[in-house]
Design a binder for these strands. Structure first.
Lengths: 131, 131
DNA sequence: CGTCAACTTGACGTTTACGTCAAGGTTAGA
DNA sequence: TCTAACCTTGACGTAAACGTCAAGTTGACG
């Protein structure tokens, strides 16, 4: 059952993406569906890769980054190289993400503060108007 | 002195942007430099707007959002409409930014955890290799 | 007067991750 | 057998915010 192969439509439903997305990923060599005639057939391996792709996207990796990481899986049987490289990439990304979050946090604080100021002005103004 | 007018080069130095950026902003009607012949001259008002633009960008507003907010300043003398509208926009943006930060935080947590897992595997493996 | 740096407009290019047709092939069910 | 649903490739379009030429002007300085 889990070895059942899936059509593109089923894949779309399963991963909440469009056919265009899956074809695009294939064209970028992120997934390698089989063929039955012209039709694509997505194996269990494809689904595994798709899971990793979706995760990678959440982490903010580019598709090209993801492709490279996925390729290491294939090439490196022992997977030690792969794991080491993945660690490096993950650490780099973590640093970026943390920096991004810090910047975002301070921007949030700043915007909050400015919003409060404006609301003060408006409150005063409406108080004056009520005199 | 503060009413001194600036060339595009001086503006670039002051705001750390390229000439292309300033011309682009003018074409998008975010700033309205004077002219001396063909040359652009950036007034104090321009610099004020540029400050707001740079802030807006930090907050993640699009240039189009920023343009609209800036325009309200000009149109609305009493500025009450402007301030109210700005508040709305700011609140909307704050919600988005907070959501973004939350998502980023959970992605960071997830990636950290996965990184830790991989590092465990590698640690085990190198321990085994040392036997 | 020359020239060099700084300025101008115009227009096409870049990036990423797909969206959106168009035109046609295939297959399952009535 | 016919049709509707699903699939295919190909190719152009989209968004944002500029980058990157090219070719021509202008202004200050020596």
């Amino acid at each position: 059952m889990p070895d059942e192969v899936m059509t593109i439509g089923q894949m779309c439903a399963a991963f909440d993406v469009t056919p265009r997305t899956l074809r695009f990923y294939e064209s970028k060599e992120l997934i390698f569906p089989l063929r039955h005639g012209q039709r694509r057939l997505f194996t269990r391996a494809c689904r595994g890769r798709m899971k990793l792709i979706m995760q990678g996207k959440r982490f903010g990796f580019s598709l090209e980054d993801i492709r490279q990481l996925l390729n290491l899986y294939d090439v490196d049987d022992q997977q030690t190289t792969q794991l080491t490289r993945t660690c490096e990439k993950a650490r780099e990304r973590l640093v970026e993400m943390q920096a991004q979050r810090d910047e975002l946090s301070s921007a949030i604080a700043e915007l909050s503060s400015q919003l409060a100021q404006i609301q003060n002005i408006l409150a005063q103004r409406s108080a004056e108007a009520a005199e």
